[in-house]
Each structure stands twice: as structure tokens, then as C-alpha cells.
């Protein structure tokens, strides 16, 4: 079965199957959008939390770490109850759209980006901070310097978050509804093929997902390599 699946995956990729392309496009678009939004929120929050001392910081970290364990089904239900027609945001017509999936996924990975950013920043030598401060940097300037220093760790945080959303199925299924041509992603398509008993096609889609995830990570890897090369 595995060999059949790999063969089918290869055929789908080589023939550039229109339906497959659409599914892959939906997946990539949704995952890129939610990663981008989560990074815009999560990275600055991570920097602020890591660099400042404030009452309740420990509690805040504990809460963030707990949120890492939030099941996708819980997020799905929570968002569903808000954007269902009967919910507070019902009139916005969000349910069963790509936007709905993005909202759910952003909630899923903001804790991932934030905690990993905090970890990356905390690893940076304290002397950088002091030096920056003695040179008269404002807190924003200092944050920027530290962030630049911690960029590999932060990049890793964003990549981890991207991996989490592109592999996620619960939120996409509940909020997107697996509507063909609209909200069918690679993972919900796999779940459907499994439901239909088409295991070969399901695994083939899995192989394609890994291929795309691999190429995107490879791209990030080269980007990182280039940046590092410039500096040395």
C-alpha cells in the first residue's frame, strides 16, 4: 500500500493535477496567512515579556505554556460558538470560510510563537542589553537589537508554528468544513479519503504535504544560511 501511495503521489505531482493544486494552494495560503499574523502578534509579545520584569510574569509564562497544550477541537468549538450565525460575530459570515480557519489557527500558534520567542531572547547574553542601555538606547531600540541577535531562535519559532498549522486538521475541519474548492486543505482532504476508504490516495496526499513542507523548510534553511554567511 505504501509503495502504491508513493507512486500515486509521484503521479499527482508530475501531472500537476488541477484539484490537487487547488488543495495545496488553499493549505499554503491559509497556513502562510495564519503564521504571518501569529508572528506579527507573537514575536513582539515574546520580546516584551522576555525583556521586562513585571508582577505576574511567572503566571503569564505558566499560562502561555499551558496554552501550548490547547487541543485544536477546543479552539474549533470556541471559535465556532462566536462565528456561528447564532454567535456574537455571526453577521460577519465567517463560518466555513478560509478566514475562519485562519482565526482558529492564529489562536493555536500565538502561544507557540510567543513562548519560543521568549526562550530565544532569554538565551541572549545579558551584556548585550546592558551595553545597549549604556549607549543610550530607548527600550524600543534595545528590543530591536536583542531581536536581531536572537533572529535564528525567532525564525525557528515561526517555522515551528508554520509546521503546526499546515499539519493541523481539527480546526480546518470544524471551521472550514472541508468544502471542495473553498476550504479543502491537504489534511481535511486526507481525512475525507480515509473516510471514503481510499487509503492509497490519503497517504499519497500525506506524502505531498511532506514534500511541500520540506521544500519550504529548505527555503528557510537557505535564507538563514545566507544571513549567517553575511555576518561572518
Amino acid at each position: 500500500m505504501i509503495l502504491d501511495s508513493l507512486h500515486s503521489a509521484f503521479l499527482l505531482l508530475v501531472s500537476w493535477d488541477a484539484e490537487m493544486i487547488e488543495i495545496v494552494a488553499v493549505s499554503l495560503r491559509v497556513s502562510c496567512a495564519s503564521t504571518l499574523v501569529a508572528a506579527l502578534v507573537g514575536v513582539p509579545s515574546g520580546v516584551v515579556i522576555a525583556l521586562n520584569r513585571f508582577p505576574g510574569k511567572r503566571l503569564c509564562l505558566t499560562v502561555l505554556n499551558t496554552l501550548l497544550a490547547l487541543p485544536t477541537v477546543v479552539i474549533g468549538l470556541l471559535v465556532y460558538s462566536f462565528i456561528s450565525r447564532r454567535g456574537v460575530f455571526g453577521p460577519l459570515e465567517l463560518l466555513y470560510t478560509q478566514k475562519a480557519i485562519i482565526i482558529g489557527q492564529v489562536i493555536l500558534i500565538i502561544p507557540v510563537v510567543t513562548t519560543l520567542t521568549i526562550a530565544a531572547i532569554s538565551r541572549i547574553d545579558r551584556r548585550y542589553r546592558r551595553t545597549a542601555l549604556t549607549l543610550g538606547a530607548t527600550s524600543v531600540q534595545m528590543g530591536w537589537v536583542i531581536l536581531k541577535e536572537a533572529r535564528f531562535g525567532v525564525m525557528a519559532a515561526v517555522i515551528a508554528a508554520f509546521g503546526r498549522v499546515i499539519a493541523e486538521v481539527g480546526i480546518s475541519m470544524m471551521l472550514g468544513g472541508n468544502a471542495k474548492g473553498f476550504t479543502r486543505t491537504m489534511t481535511t482532504a486526507m481525512a475525507l479519503e480515509y473516510d471514503k476508504g481510499e487509503f492509497v490516495l490519503a497517504i499519497a496526499l500525506g506524502a505531498i504535504l511532506l514534500t511541500f513542507a520540506f521544500s519550504i523548510n529548505l527555503m528557510f534553511h537557505f535564507l538563514q544560511g545566507r544571513i549567517r554567511g553575511d555576518d561572518v
Binding site: 487547488e22 494552494a25 488553499v26 499554503l28 495560503r29 478560509q98 474548492g181
Partner: peptide, 12 residues
């Protein structure tokens, strides 16, 4: 890549 994916999806 991102642009391509957005265009592919909005054509409905």
C-alpha cells in the same frame, strides 16, 4: 508562492 496561492483561490 504566496501570491500564486492567493490568486488560485479567489477565482470562484
Amino acid at each position: 508562492l504566496i501570491m500564486m496561492t492567493s490568486v488560485a483561490v479567489t477565482a470562484a
